[in-house]
Write a protein that binds this DNA or RNA. Sequence first.
DNA 1: CTGAAAGCGCTAACAA
DNA 2: TTGTTAGCGCTTTCAG
Lengths: 330, 330
Amino acid sequence: MSEETRLRVLRAAEELGYHPHLLARNLAHGRTRNLGLITPISLEHLFASAGFFSQLIRGMHRAALEAGYNLSLHIAESEEEAVERIRDVVRGRSVDGLLITNPTVASPYLRDLKRHRIPYVFIGHPLEEAVYVDNDNVEVSRIGVQHLIRCGHRRIVFLNGPARFTFCIDRLRGYRAALEEAGIPYREELVWQSELVESAAYEVVYRLAPRHEFTAVFAGSDVQAVGAIRALRDRGLEVPDDVAVVCVNNTDLARHFIPSLTTVDLHEYWLGYWAVKRLLQAVEGERTEHPLLIPGELVVRESCGCREQRPGPEGGGAAEGTERPTERSV
Amino acid sequence: MSEETRLRVLRAAEELGYHPHLLARNLAHGRTRNLGLITPISLEHLFASAGFFSQLIRGMHRAALEAGYNLSLHIAESEEEAVERIRDVVRGRSVDGLLITNPTVASPYLRDLKRHRIPYVFIGHPLEEAVYVDNDNVEVSRIGVQHLIRCGHRRIVFLNGPARFTFCIDRLRGYRAALEEAGIPYREELVWQSELVESAAYEVVYRLAPRHEFTAVFAGSDVQAVGAIRALRDRGLEVPDDVAVVCVNNTDLARHFIPSLTTVDLHEYWLGYWAVKRLLQAVEGERTEHPLLIPGELVVRESCGCREQRPGPEGGGAAEGTERPTERSV
DNA sequence: CTGAAAGCGCTAACAA
DNA sequence: TTGTTAGCGCTTTCAG
């Protein structure tokens, strides 16, 4: 066919206002060009931070768009509901692949998933073998703890989340690794644990703080850090003067809290982006290799005490660590 | 057809593992059972708060699910991109209706929308006439300012957002209404304006605070409140002792900041829920009347100074105003 | 290279 | 009631 006729046809189509009907095309092709996102946990608790979700979804959407796919939302408030959502969606064949966040030890949907041989990828890693993309959580806490060690701390409390989350298990490994590298003995009594809400963190720290000697706290999330800081204060310990604090999750709260929090940014955008890329690999045999583990990045602010404090917005030197480098290539 | 045969058929279908193919069904029906969400602004700035989005989307998803619809995401980082997203989606006929957030004065997609006569509803209200669901923003600021007045304040600064957002225009009306009701004269010099980020709020307040007399600030968002509080502090004014602060947006930041912030909760969940309900009205002629304006709700914490402070998590009396009443009926 | 026809899996309209 | 058939709007295959 000549180039000229091609263009003439295209122009005619344009004039007549013709546009292909995607549903019909997809039916003929036997695919939907839809990717489903399943969240088997209430969104507020999704990775312990509301902001996490919007970034994650943004990255996912970008990758999907690049490949001409749509992202459809299937929010469940529990794993049981997730089982239903997944069942509906695979039965109706309304998606070509599934993205599933927050896998747990239980992951009751895994059976259905394997039986129906629909492509899927987890965000976070389950215990059972499965395709996943995750933060490099070992690295994440290693980075945070290393920073505290460089600031001169040797007695560092780790305020971790519950061990039922696989990422908390990984984080503990990173904590130990950092200590070991610095030749600091690991002390079990300095590893504390709380649920991922402020009040729980407050209580644990308020109770345990007087019983131990320590000069720094590494907290598993921003809200836990805030709970810890409040508890320390109520025990007469100021942050960062008496105790240094570093945490995970670079959120609005971390940025704006007083003192502003030194955090490890999780780069949720890229977590979502690569999760979709990887799913697409399975869906249409894309051949490129994609990262599985997204590195974290330290953002130094006031709570670790290694930066001089100046007055101004964000309590000091707004320039650095203010902009989220969420879209930098990893 | 007898009930018995009906059941036998159903059982047979079950045994053979038959499930209807949604794509085919929808093609035959000439509809998609898909609702598209368009966000013509970067998600971080969506209504000036990251948490806003997850709640909004959760409400939307719930309403869609109840009606057997899917929610598909179309994130744009600008209005120009939104135009593209919308064009693609209506041309491919891949959604039955559209939800569009953050309409502005420009709203360049309105033309296409009207031409293609696809059902749509805005979240927030544009200037041009259009179907929308919105927060009752006049009420929202009236509630906040009223609270300050009840606390005994009469010289109340309003730190508003930019007037290019329609909600900021509404908020100003509520501010004036509250003053008027209390017989307090309106003073233009007490209405300040900043972009919806902390640094901008800081600068405005730092600059204007020494030039005026006031005992309270009503801020248009949580981050603006934080910027204001920091600026006041750098001017030697403590919150809530010297200046009381109330703001809009009941976020993690508002909850956990020190002092914790008295806010007006926007009930984003219901905003999303009713937006979808209303869209479905247009899509399939549902007949019930749905609310158009979602009321806000005051959550009293420390920053307004009318509550005694106690030590503990969240800086005092965690019980009240801690749980988000997001799913209460409106 | 072009045109006709079959089929994707369902719905709806029409005979039987 | 039941069975048959013609679409829905596209892709793909197979003759012409």
